[in-house]
Amino acid sequence: MDIVTLENVTKVYGEGDTRVWGLHDVSMTVKQGEVLAVVGASGSGKSTLLNVIGGVDTPSSGKIVVDGKDITKLNDEQMSVFRRRKIGFVFQAYHLIPVLSVEENIMMPILLDHRKPDKEYVDYIMEMLGLQDRKTHLPNQLSGGQQQRAAIARALANRPALILADEPTGALDSKNGNEVITLLQDSVKKLNQTLILITHNLDIAREADRIVRMVDGEIIENM
C-alpha cells in the first residue's frame, strides 16, 4: 500500500531572474512500512521535499497524497490537524520546547489534538528509547543524544502514518549518531511505521530499504 504519492510536484522560490527551483517535477511513492533514505548535496531540495510531504510547506504545483488524502487541497486549519495526526517530525536541531518536561514534550502532539494521552504507550516508547528516568527533566538537562531520542519519542507518540526525519544525526557525534539512528530504525520497524529519512551519511542510508538521490530539486536516482 502506498502511504505517500507525489505527482509532478514543483516548488519554486522567488520570481523572474531570482527564481529558484526547490523541487522540479518530482514524482515518487513510498510504501507503508518502508524506510526511505533521501541523500543529496546541500540545496538539492531534500528538506523541501520533506516539508511539502509533511504539510509545513505548500508546493507550487502538483499533487501530494498522504495516507489517502490529497494534502494540497487542505486549508491551514485542516493542515494543522493533518500534521498532528498523520506526521511525526524529527529535526536535526531536536526542536524540543525548552520549558516543558521530556514527558510533556513527548505528549505534545496528543495534547495538541485534544486527546488524553495513552500513558502506557507513551511509557512503552520512552522505555524503548531509554528515557524513562528522564521523564521529568527539562530538555537542557539532557545530552544531545538524549534530546534527539526524546524528539524521536515525540514523533512516535501519536502513532502517525509517516515519520519524517531531517538529518536526525547531524548535530551528534558518530557514536551518539549511530545509537540514535539504530534506535529510530528499530522503533520504526517494531511499530511498523513508515520513515522518510534525510541524511548525509551513506552508512546510514545503506541501512534503509530504499535510497533516493536528489540534485537540483530532481530525483536522479531511485535505488
Binding site: 509533511g54 509545513v56 491551514d76 486549519e77 494543522s80 490537524v81 493533518f82 500534521r83 498532528r84 495526526r85 506526521i87 517530525f89 526542536h95 524540543l96 520546547i97 525548552p98 505534545m108 502532539p109 495538541l112 489534538d113 515525540r154
Partner: peptide, 16 residues
C-alpha cells in the same frame, strides 16, 4: 518565534 514554529509544525492550530 522558534517555539511558535515548533508548536505549529507539531500541529498547534492558529486559535490555540
Amino acid at each position: 518565534i522558534r517555539e511558535i514554529g515548533i508548536l505549529k509544525v507539531l500541529g498547534c492550530d492558529t486559535d490555540e
